[in-house]
């Protein structure tokens, strides 16, 4: 990623967060990763104090989102991000254990850009994350406000 894109990782399981981070780093992505372990903190960060998302105007963000969070549902976060005029262009990668077809369909309908199911098999998991990292290194991310 040419411009300094910040990766927002919303993942309640710290183990998962660690494994994801490791594998992204292994694929050679060195962008800043801001981890959040619950939805509320992540929303506060994303939308700022005034709740408009104006804070991130001009910043390029990429969101890695888990659907099963302790306080809010990842789907809610996805919806709010895609409804916000500053954040709606931010790519959202849903990375979760759920492989229910209804859930996947719903996420894409709400504007999720990539949906990845976490495989239990670690080789597949590591592989998936590394490929995601490779993907991160080539995609163009627009700044948060146009």
């Amino acid at each position: 990623m040419s411009n300094p894109v910040t990766i927002i990782m919303i993942e309640d399981d710290e183990g998962h967060a660690r494994l994801i981070e490791r594998n992204i780093r292994r694929s050679g992505v060195n962008n800043e990763i801001v981890p959040f372990t619950n939805g509320t903190a992540a929303l506060n960060y994303l939308f700022g104090k005034d709740g408009t998302g104006l804070d991130h105007k001009g910043n390029a963000l990429l969101i890695l989102l888990d659907l099963n969070l302790p306080d809010t549902s990842g789907i809610d976060i996805l919806k709010q991000v895609k409804d916000n005029k500053y954040l709606k262009t931010t790519p959202v990668v849903v990375l979760t254990t759920t492989d229910d077809s209804q859930e996947i369909k719903r996420c894409y309908e709400l504007g999720c850009n990539v949906y990845i199911t976490k495989p239990v098999n670690y080789e597949s998991f590591a592989n998936a994350i590394r490929q995601l990292g490779l993907f991160f290194s080539v995609i163009q991310v627009p700044p948060a406000a146009t």
């Binding site: 399981d13 183990g15 494994l19 099963n68 254990t97 976490k118 239990v120 670690y122 998991f125 590591a126």
Partner: peptide, 16 residues
Amino acid sequence: HDLRSPLVNIMGFTSE
């Protein structure tokens, strides 16, 4: 689903 989540960790860190 919730059982799967820790399993990913166990599997992942075992591999690590």
